[in-house]
Design a protein around this nucleic acid. Structure first.
Lengths: 205, 205
DNA sequence: TACAAAAGTGCAACGAGTCAACTTTTCAAT
DNA sequence: ATTGAAAAGTTGACTCGTTGCACTTTTGTA
């Protein structure tokens, strides 16, 4: 009667969850650096060695590896409404993601994460890991080679808006103005070397 | 006859230099993570506690806190040739800095630094520390409030081009295309809300 | 039923970094 | 010149995240 995973994998997932839950609870309760790895392991009733078989580092305890974030980013570009640019689509997606749908990020959680350098960095690095996938999506959409530098730049900068938002008095405004820059720049980039639009005059007839 | 600094400060600077030199030599010789803090301290003939009174971390041993980097960035914007935009000036400055004047970065040094995550991150963080100063310079130049989000965005992205360069097959090309994006976007930003240029028609005459 | 892989345990160790108490050197004011 | 405070350095023990190793238990499969 094992639905999809055997007992083994179920148990493994269970300990993993126990660890993550214990960690989050303790961190929120007593503060990130007042809680040691040992405390977390003990609270989940495993050894610290076991803990590190599930999570590569202390910071990793806080984040679950969101598999669909990347898919959502790519989809935002690929499935955007007609007549809008990839840059505009990314603005919408990131704004919604950050300011409309809070996701599973409660206020406590947010405070925890960006109250600690190590956690901020870890989160940012996870986020930036989608850079190449996003760049590829943009490139494919624009009909350019998958390693096109302009597309890589747009992808990088679009993701970096999140770093720009943090540390700004008005994060939303920061993201908006950053995307103004990117959208205008991107439009000009496309105008300079337009995608495979059927030319009015046949080439070198 | 102490020129400018007393014996005390001279000695302090000497130990500091001894530490930095020993560290660099050992790191290059045996690899960053085959050399411990103890080895460095021993080679400089001080205790590890003394080492940490001079450098906050192992990574810090590798970089000297270049005071004029920030000044150069600000100057690049402020003292640029007439008729060019701040974005264009930054492109020139960063390209020259990264590809023309190698600075004191030998090939070994470069290999050392970007062969290790920790060192790369440290370098990048030091570099990004100039973000706010640069943003202020841009804002002042454009006649905008010193915390203007568009200026902050340009500053952030311009500095981030260095991250974009690393991890690209053709770093120079990556920087150039990134700045194409930024320059075009910046021109549009200025066009939308131009700096204090005397209007052809007096406002609300 | 037997066997191999995977999960977990226990313990010892390492390396980076901190802390507190103490000695030595240097600077400056008398 | 002497003294006294501040700063530089030492020492050694300690914390904490993280790894390695040898071992037991559990589980899936042949």
């Amino acid at each position: 009667m094992t639905e999809t995973m055997g007992r083994r994998e179920r148990k493994k997932a269970a300990t993993r969850k126990a660890l993550a839950d214990a960690a989050l609870r303790l961190f929120l309760e007593h503060g990130y650096d007042n809680v040691g790895i040992k405390d977390v392991a003990e609270a989940a009733d495993v050894s610290t060695t076991t803990l590190f078989k599930h999570f590569p580092s202390k910071e990793a305890l806080v984040f679950d590896p969101d598999a669909d974030v990347e898919a959502a980013l790519v989809a935002a570009v690929r499935d955007r409404p007609a007549g809008t640019s990839a840059a505009a689509a990314l603005r919408e997606h990131i704004l919604r993601r950050k300011f409309v749908e809070p996701g599973r990020a409660t206020a406590d959680f947010t405070r925890l994460v960006d109250g600690h350098q190590a956690l901020r960095d870890y989160a940012h690095r996870m986020w930036m890991r989608h850079e190449t996938a996003l760049a590829r999506a943009i490139a494919e959409d624009a009909g350019r080679p998958e390693d096109d530098p302009a597309c890589a730049a747009l992808a990088h900068f679009a993701l970096e808006t999140s770093a720009l938002a943090r540390g700004s008095a008005d994060p939303r405004e920061a993201v908006e103005r950053a995307f103004d820059l990117l959208e205008n720049g991107w439009d000009a980039t496309l105008a300079a070397a337009p995608p495979a639009a059927p030319p009015a005059v046949p080439p070198s007839g």
